[in-house]
C-alpha cells in the first residue's frame, strides 16, 4: 500500500540510519590503509578539517534553525561524517579497481575533494531529514520547521565551497552508495541547478578554466562572461 508522506519520510530516515549503523565516525581499517599507502599520509589533515568544518556547520545550523538546535546540528554532522567515510572508501575501492593503483596521495591530500565529498554527504543527510521536518510540521526544537532552509546550495556557503567543485563528486557519490530514489533525484536537482545557474555566476571557477582552454587556441575569440 502507498505510504503517507510522513511515513515515507520516516522510512527514508530509517534507511539512512540503518545503512550507516555499522559505519563509524572514524576511518575504517580499510580506509586507514588507503591513507597509510599515500606518499603523504592525509589522516591528520582529514581529522583537523572535520573538526573545523564541524564547528562551522553546527554554528550555522544553530543560526538557521535556532540556538537550541546546535546539538541537533552536531548529530546531523556526525551522520554526515559516517556517510562521508563510507562513500570515500567505496570510491577508492572503485578507483583502485579501475586504475590498478593503491596510492591516492594527490586525491586524498586535496582539501577540495574532502570538502566537496563531506558537503555532498551532508546534503544527503539534510535532504533526508529536511523532508521529514517539512512534512511533520510541529516537531522541532521550538520554532518554524526550517530544515528545508538548509537545502542546497546552503552547504556551499557554510563550507565556502564552489558549486563547480561540489558538482565533481555527485555522480561518483551516487555510484558509490545505495541511495534512495528520492535522494538521487535530489542530487540530480542540485546538479541541474549548478549546470544551469550557479556555475555560471560571476567569479565562478568555470570561467578561469574556459579561459585556460581557449588560451590554447589564440585565434579564437573568447566571449566575455555574461553578468
Amino acid at each position: 500500500p502507498p505510504q503517507t508522506p510522513v511515513r515515507a519520510a520516516m522510512t527514508s530516515i530509517q534507511q539512512l540510519r540503518g545503512d550507516l549503523i555499522s559505519s563509524g565516525d572514524q576511518p575504517s581499517t580499510n580506509l586507514a590503509t588507503y591513507f597509510k599507502n599515500c606518499t603523504v599520509d592525509p589522516t591528520q589533515d582529514v581529522l583537523k578539517r572535520l573538526e573545523t568544518l564541524g564547528q562551522a556547520f553546527s554554528q550555522r545550523f544553530g543560526q538557521t534553525v535556532g540556538p537550541n538546535c546546535v546539538v541537533l546540528g552536531k548529530q546531523r554532522f556526525t551522520l554526515g561524517v559516517k556517510l562521508y567515510y563510507k562513500v570515500m572508501e567505496a570510491m577508492l575501492k572503485s578507483e583502485e579497481k579501475r586504475l590498478s593503483v593503491q596510492n591516492f596521495s594527490k586525491l586524498l591530500n586535496d582539501p577540495t575533494f574532502h570538502t566537496s565529498l563531506l558537503a555532498c554527504a551532508l546534503e544527503v543527510v539534510m535532504a533526508t531529514y529536511g523532508e521529514s521536518s517539512f512534512k511533520t510540521a510541529g516537531y522541532n526544537c521550538g520554532g518554524e520547521p526550517s530544515e528545508t532552509d538548509m537545502r542546497f546550495p546552503w552547504i556551499l556557503d557554510v563550507f565556502n565551497l564552489t558549486a563547480f567543485n561540489f558538482y565533481k563528486v555527485i555522480e561518483s557519490f551516487i555510484k558509490a552508495d545505495s541511495l534512495s530514489k528520492d535522494i538521487i533525484k535530489h542530487l540530480e536537482t542540485c546538479e541541474n541547478l549548478i549546470m544551469e545557474r550557479i556555475a555560471w555566476r560571476t567569479g565562478s571557477l568555470l570561467f578561469e578554466l574556459l579561459r585556460q582552454e581557449h588560451e590554447g587556441g589564440a585565434a579564437e575569440q573568447v566571449e566575455t562572461p555574461a553578468s
Binding site: 579501475r98 586535496d110 577540495t112 563528486v169 555522480e171 561518483s172
Partner: peptide, 21 residues
C-alpha cells in the same frame, strides 16, 4: 530504480575530475 544519467566514461572517474590522473 532511478533514471539518473551517468555521464562519466569508463576511463573517467573521481581521480580525473580532481586532476589526479
Amino acid at each position: 530504480s532511478h533514471d539518473y544519467h551517468f555521464g562519466l566514461e569508463d576511463h573517467e572517474g573521481i581521480s580525473e575530475l580532481f586532476d589526479c590522473d
